[in-house]
Nucleic acid binder design. Structure first.
Length: 281
DNA sequence: GACCAGGAGTTGA
DNA sequence: TCAACTCATGGT
């Protein structure tokens, strides 16, 4: 399959997914209980997965009309026009909701390198094991496997105070019908996610964008906060951004304003801007 | 040793 | 409703 429309480096290094490994241009990605192997070979998108079949094209959201998305958001202003060209080929991925939820609870108040360490440890202790290309991969544990883990077990993975949140979130997730999360509208799903302990506005937006089909979700972390403070104050409707800290209400207002500005694909805009901020700010 | 990192919960006014 | 505080941890 042609893959001129997808850039693996931009996609995987954009902080949306944490459990991936690159070796000589080949990417191995932990996708729930499987490992997906992907590479760009002479402009072709080559992939396989173990131990089960993974719909890799679905995983990379190749069903998205990326040209329509880019023209929809790219016309809004010069910055997003630049960022969407600079990071051309960046795709939002369709992750497993459980793995995504746990990942972004781990991602609170820490950096990507450490999130990766935490998740790798969780996989080593509670996940499965897969051999591929002479290398061992530990896959992401099932809901059941993490339900059996104690807070102390989890804390042993360097989660810190997050161990308690993860333990509670695992049990909350087990009670939820994921179909409701996929099919529900943004506001309803947001409220459902916010009822999970350890999930605030930002984590809810990430989970919705990266695993629950809500491409309008616009997560605001410190990097996106900087972009807004510098380039989108007029959109966000905030005069004094000297102290850029969000109360829940403020987050809601600003995120909503950004969704209104960029439209139904605001999540893609957010991801381009995140990469821009990481590279240049 | 302070500061930062894809934040969220609790508390007191 | 909101600011201030606290929560673990590792890198810089």
């Amino acid at each position: 399959m042609k893959m001129d429309a997808i850039n693996l480096k931009h996609t995987l290094e954009s902080g949306q997914v944490f459990l991936w490994y690159e070796r000589r241009g080949i990417y191995y990605i932990v996708c729930s209980s499987n490992v997906v192997k992907v590479e760009s070979c002479n402009g072709e998108f080559v992939y396989e997965s173990r131990p089960e079949h993974v719909d890799v094209e679905r995983f990379f959201r190749m069903d998205d009309d990326i040209h329509a998305i880019n023209s929809s958001i790219g016309c809004k202003d010069a910055l997003i026009a630049y960022a969407s060209k600079r990071f051309k080929g960046l795709r939002i991925m369709r992750q497993d909701p459980f793995q995504c939820l746990i990942s972004f609870i781990c991602a609170t108040n820490t950096n990507i390198a450490r999130v990766r360490q935490m998740l790798e440890c969780i996989c080593r202790r509670f996940g499965g094991k897969i051999e591929l290309d002479g290398r061992t991969f530990h896959t992401f544990p099932s809901v059941r496997a993490l339900q059996d883990a104690s807070i102390n077990d989890l804390a042993g993975c360097g989660l810190g105070y997050r161990a308690r949140f993860i333990a509670q979130a695992v049990h909350s997730y087990a009670e939820i019908d994921v179909d409701d999360l996929v099919k529900g509208c943004y506001d309803d799903v947001r409220d459902m996610l916010l009822s999970i302990d350890g999930v605030g506005s930002k984590v809810a937006d990430c989970v919705m964008l990266f695993s629950l089909e809500k491409l309008e979700a616009f997560p605001i972390d410190v990097w996106i906060g900087r972009v807004i403070a510098r380039h989108y104050r007029h959109i966000a409707g905030i005069e004094d951004m000297a102290k850029f800290k969000f109360t829940p209400q403020m987050y809601r207002r600003v995120s909503s304003a950004m969704r209104g500005y960029f439209g139904r694909y605001a999540g893609y805009a957010q991801q381009y801007l995140y990469c821009y901020a990481r590279a240049y700010m």
